[in-house]
Simulated assay, not measured.
Amino acid sequence: MNKTRSGNGYSDSDAAVSVEDAERDAGAGAGDIPGTSFSRGGNLGDVNPANSNGQLSNKYINFPSLVSWATRYGTEENDWTAGDNCTNFVSDALLAAGVPMKWDGKSPFRNGASDQVDQWWNGYYDTPNSPVNTISEEYRAHTRSRSWTTAGGLYSFLENTGSYEDPVSRAAPGDLMFWSYANGATAGQVHHAAVITGLNDGDIRYSQHSGLQSNASLKEREPLFTSANGSQIIHIIHVVPWPCGVGAQGC
């Protein structure tokens, strides 16, 4: 996901930035956490705690609301309680912050969920012919776009609708953080997402699901994550709501 804001198509296993490109952008490619690199340069020592997105809020996103919602619900199962739901949590946070869903009303479906790269929606409460008061987790999973529920899907949606990747030195509360594998057969696959909810000198604080965390320390937790999942590349994504993005007007 580069600042050219150009799309690369869509696949669950595709990352918008290759490992080689990420290492090139990062210089040596290594952050100050063992086994971890950042995709657009810098390391945790470059974190600037004075950075803020609040002044960039508009009618389609309120960054302080995004941060407060993610912080509040990071340790609560407030929606989808079965299995991995890190991206569902991030999508819910974006919705709570004012980002409107995007659905053309006619996209093809995969078990009820749109595969289109420029679609982002949750139809659980407003799906034609849906059962009333359904609590089935299977039904919930089938009434959301892939971009709503998978890290790679949301990453691709953001890439294709105007959001962009920033260096660590520009990370701010309200940005999103994605993890991709650095090595092996899954290299480049984006597989986890969280909301940046705070900054300290030399550290990023984030809130997530799929391991409930509120304002967790990246510096403290990333070595454990890397040990369990292998070397990672971390992507800092600044959200531009789709009505404000590529070819859009009105923000």
Rank of each mutant, 00 (worst) to 15 (best):
A141H: 11
Y155M: 15
V132T: 06
N122E: 11
P173H: 10
T149Q: 15
W121E: 07
N133V: 00
S156T: 13
V168M: 08
V132Q: 09
I135P: 02
L158Q: 10
P131L: 05
G162T: 04
T186C: 12
I135Q: 15
N183D: 14
A151P: 01
N111K: 13
L158F: 02
N133I: 04
A182L: 14
A193D: 11
L158P: 01
G198A: 02
T149C: 12
N111Q: 12
G123D: 07
A193L: 10
A151D: 03
Q116F: 11
N111I: 02
V132R: 09
L199D: 07
T149G: 13
T143L: 00
R146N: 03
G184A: 09
L176C: 06
T186S: 15
R140Y: 11
Y125F: 07
Q119G: 01
H192M: 15
R110Y: 13
V190G: 05
A172G: 14
S130C: 12
V117G: 07
H142L: 09
E165G: 02
N160M: 05
T149D: 13
R110H: 10
N160W: 10
F157K: 10
E159H: 07
S163D: 06
E165P: 03
A182R: 15
A141K: 11
A172W: 14
F109Y: 00
A187N: 08
E137T: 11
A171W: 00
G198M: 11
F178L: 00
N160Y: 08
L154D: 06
D166I: 02
G198R: 09
R144P: 00
V190N: 01
P100C: 05
L199P: 03
S156H: 09
G152A: 13
W148T: 11
D166Y: 05
T197M: 08
H192R: 14
W148F: 13
G105A: 08
S130M: 13
E137R: 08
N160D: 14
Y125H: 15
Y181T: 10
Y155R: 01
Q189H: 06
T150S: 10
W148I: 02
V117D: 15
D175R: 06
N133F: 10
S156L: 02
S145D: 08
T197P: 01
S147P: 00
K102S: 11
A172Q: 15
H142Y: 11
W120S: 07
Q119A: 14
